[in-house]
Computed example of a mutant assay.
Amino acid sequence: MTGFHDPADDPVSAQPAPRPRTHRGPQMYGAVLGHPIGHSKSPAMHSAAYARLGLPYVYTALDTEASGLAALFARVRAERNWFGLSVTMPLKTAVLPLLDALEPVAAALRAVNTVVVDREDPNRQRLVGHNTDVTGIVNALRFAGIGERPTAAVLGGGGTAVSAVAALQRLGAPAADIFVRGSGSAAPATDAGSAVGLSCRLRPWTETAAALADYDVVISTLPPRAADPLADSLPPSSLRGRLLLDVAYDPWPSALAAAWELRGGTIVPGIEMLLYQGVEQVRLFTAGSAHSTPDVINVMCDAIGVPRR
């Protein structure tokens, strides 16, 4: 497989801003799932978008572990008033057996961060898995000015690392090194490399700090604070021109991001990825209802403290 193109990665074209609309109808529900989930800014971002669109959508955060997924999905099917779910760590692969279908990107990567409730069949609601994390990473790095054919590294091998590998392939990286503590934990990421046609090499975690200055772009997919120990071990050499995307945005800046910037490197906050993948989620949850117009994107930026695009 030589890769795939997702139109959601294309730059958003300027369009006249529509007036806010009021949609009559029953209240619909959505949520972001994960554990822990209290730090998530997704509810603020999504709620701002739906308010701007005039939709009767309520979007919250639900602290959910893998053991509770089956009951929650059964509830979603039974209640028939849900529009979709966002899925974060550690559930991006755990949801797979509970879905009716996967869109091509999610199917290739075997990782889902978005579940759309398809209500076209009045007798049975289908739950369809998507992956918008890839789009989020691609657009965050493009906005930061990533160059052509970047040398690249990924920290961690879990569900978000899968999306990072696919994003690097789309960005033209010739290969990616994946740094993990145990080779077994990187199987999903290396499988993703095979799926999208990107050569991936596993490297031991003990080599991470000394090697990071060798890459044009580093994507940390680790949970909050997990990469902090690397901050004191970075080599003293300049990191000018090197990009670090740390997907963990709370607390921010992370210790690694602060050390990276201190050495002259460019940091890409994980909240930028959250914004771009969220724009695509809104498109999916609303069947394309003016999601890409500047005013909708701007209220999403304002809700999570990101400069307007």
Rank of each mutant, 00 (worst) to 15 (best):
T132H: 13
W205L: 06
V117Y: 09
H130I: 10
S194A: 15
A107G: 05
A175C: 07
A167P: 12
L96M: 07
E148P: 12
T208F: 03
L96P: 10
T114C: 12
V138Y: 09
G84P: 05
A189T: 04
R203L: 15
A161M: 01
V154K: 00
N113A: 08
N131I: 14
A101R: 15
P97E: 05
G156I: 02
A211F: 02
T114H: 13
L155N: 05
A166S: 12
R203Y: 12
S86T: 11
P188A: 02
E207P: 13
V154C: 08
I137C: 03
V115P: 07
R126V: 06
E103F: 11
V95E: 07
N113E: 11
R124E: 10
Y215D: 09
V217M: 03
R119Y: 03
D133G: 00
P122M: 08
A107Y: 12
G156F: 06
P174K: 06
A167F: 07
E79W: 04
A108M: 07
V112G: 04
N139R: 15
A140Y: 04
N123A: 11
V117N: 07
D133V: 05
S220I: 11
T160C: 02
G193T: 10
A189F: 01
L141S: 06
N113W: 07
A164C: 14
I178H: 08
A175L: 03
V138A: 04
K92W: 06
E148V: 13
M89I: 15
L171R: 00
P174T: 09
L98R: 08
V134A: 05
K92Y: 02
S163L: 00
G156N: 01
A213C: 08
R142M: 00
R201Q: 06
A106R: 15
V218N: 06
K92V: 06
L141M: 07
A140E: 08
I146P: 01
A167C: 07
T190I: 14
I137K: 00
V95W: 03
P104V: 09
R80N: 10
A167W: 01
H130T: 08
G158F: 02
L96R: 14
T208P: 04
P150Q: 01
D191L: 01
T151S: 14
L96H: 12
A192F: 03
G158H: 01
